[in-house]
Amino acid sequence: MHKILVIDDEETIVTYLTLVLEDSGYATISAEGADEGLALAREERPDLITLDIMMPKRSGLSAFAEIKKDSELASIPVIIISGFTALYDLRDPEAFGSIVQDGAIPRPEYCMEKPIDIPDFLRAVKLLCEGGSMPAENAL
């Protein structure tokens, strides 16, 4: 059974995503913030991470950078789930490049804008857990 780590500062969102995943046969763990999420990821080695960006204290983006730079975590697929605004849209390759200052960081495996489409989400989770990758258009 695949294990998914859900990271979001809003309890409602965490409850929603974990129940949806559990109902679809996944095991779940969750964290309310970036630091907690990273610690949990190292401890539990999930098969996939969902990550919110706008969180107090530490941006999800900073956590994402750390994941991709850590040899032990870099291979875990990450789905960024956030309320994208025109201020930043990580689905846009150019935007990603300028928001994430470090050019060595690859883009997330998938990006979804809140409110998310659940069937779409579950399809992406299944595909990524099985080692596949999202078709290029889906990233936009």
Partner: peptide, 29 residues
């Protein structure tokens, strides 16, 4: 519309949990 995205997702989440709770007869859910 932009600003209430989080709230909308929260509402959709609440509905999912209520509906699945009804379907499963799970009063806690």
């Amino acid at each position: 519309a932009h600003g209430i995205k989080n709230i909308i997702m929260g509402l959709e989440g609440g509905m999912y949990v209520v509906n699945s709770g009804l379907k499963r007869n799970d009063s806690q859910r």
